[in-house]
Simulated scan of single mutants.
Amino acid sequence: MTLLLLIVLLVVAWWLLGRDHRSPADRDYEADERNRMPAELADGKLVLSEQYRRTDVPRKLGARFDQVFLTPDGRLVPVDTKRRRRTRVTPYDQIEVSVQGAVLRHGRPGPLSRYEVASYGYLRIVRESLPTVYLRFPLLGDCELEALVDRYQGIQSGEVEPRAARSPAMCRKCAYRADCSADVARLR
């Protein structure tokens, strides 16, 4: 009797665990999203999602990953999602995803440490009433990120003079705008 009960429980568990429990709408969404992805992401495996990681190399850096995919050829590719109308990669986007790349290179968890980190990332742009777009762009290297961190710390300490932003829009979102003599948005 116990053996029969155990067999029934195993069959029920196998049946429940083997089924795809997502709703049809969720399955359709995933299929649509994979169709929009570049082939290397669509054919790859999602290995990190909505996780925060840190590293001390090349400087103390932390990054919150939207998604990291393992491509079929064994590269880790960071993907960051933005909601906006314009389909372009800004310098801020490039820096943000480059920091993610550096954290992956120097502070990735054990099982992922055997994979190479791609020299590029993707920006996934979600646009209202329009299809989602994926834009590929090169990541900054460790030396470039070190220089940016050093410059930021120099500005914070007063040792380095800030320079005017290329666009007033960059100043509008800056947390240090009130104290900045180079605020392009305010000067125009």
Results as ranks from 00 to 15, higher is better:
97 V>G: 03
169 A>C: 08
187 L>K: 13
182 A>M: 15
20 D>A: 06
110 G>H: 15
163 R>Y: 05
178 A>H: 11
102 A>F: 04
155 I>F: 04
107 G>Y: 10
126 V>G: 07
115 Y>N: 03
153 Q>R: 05
52 Y>R: 11
144 E>R: 02
135 L>T: 01
58 P>I: 00
29 Y>Q: 12
10 L>V: 15
140 L>K: 12
4 L>K: 10
179 D>S: 09
145 L>Q: 04
45 K>C: 07
106 H>R: 00
33 E>T: 14
19 R>F: 11
83 R>T: 10
32 D>N: 15
19 R>Q: 10
80 D>A: 03
186 R>A: 15
121 G>S: 11
161 E>Q: 14
137 F>M: 02
136 R>N: 08
91 P>D: 01
44 G>I: 01
74 G>H: 02
42 A>N: 14
98 S>M: 06
142 D>Q: 13
123 L>W: 03
80 D>K: 00
87 T>K: 07
156 Q>T: 05
118 A>E: 07
153 Q>C: 04
70 L>V: 09
140 L>A: 13
98 S>E: 02
106 H>E: 04
119 S>H: 12
137 F>D: 02
120 Y>G: 07
176 Y>H: 15
136 R>D: 01
148 L>P: 12
69 F>A: 00
135 L>N: 01
65 F>H: 06
108 R>I: 09
77 V>C: 03
62 G>F: 12
35 N>M: 15
176 Y>S: 11
48 L>T: 09
124 R>C: 07
58 P>F: 00
94 Q>W: 05
97 V>L: 04
10 L>P: 10
108 R>H: 09
104 L>H: 06
135 L>F: 05
45 K>N: 12
151 R>L: 14
182 A>G: 11
106 H>K: 01
121 G>I: 08
181 S>H: 14
180 C>T: 09
63 A>Y: 14
162 P>I: 00
5 L>M: 13
5 L>S: 12
77 V>P: 02
184 V>P: 11
60 K>Y: 11
50 E>A: 07
89 V>Y: 04
170 M>C: 07
67 Q>H: 14
112 L>V: 07
15 W>S: 11
75 R>V: 05
73 D>C: 01
89 V>F: 00
157 S>M: 07
115 Y>M: 03
73 D>V: 05
64 R>L: 08
146 E>C: 12
149 V>E: 07
60 K>S: 10
50 E>D: 15
90 T>P: 14
21 H>E: 06
160 V>N: 03
47 V>A: 10
104 L>R: 01
24 P>W: 00
55 T>I: 10
119 S>K: 06
22 R>V: 06
180 C>N: 12
164 A>R: 10
54 R>N: 06
59 R>C: 12
177 R>M: 12
36 R>I: 09
180 C>I: 08
75 R>W: 08
14 W>K: 10
63 A>P: 08
48 L>S: 08
160 V>W: 02
40 E>F: 13
145 L>V: 13
47 V>M: 12
5 L>G: 08
44 G>Q: 05
171 C>H: 03
128 E>N: 05
87 T>E: 02
126 V>Q: 11
46 L>G: 12
92 Y>L: 05
145 L>N: 09
107 G>W: 04
42 A>L: 13
126 V>S: 14
28 D>N: 13
85 R>H: 01
27 R>L: 13
188 R>A: 11
103 V>L: 04
50 E>M: 03
102 A>Y: 04
183 D>F: 08
73 D>T: 04
66 D>P: 15
170 M>A: 13
23 S>K: 09
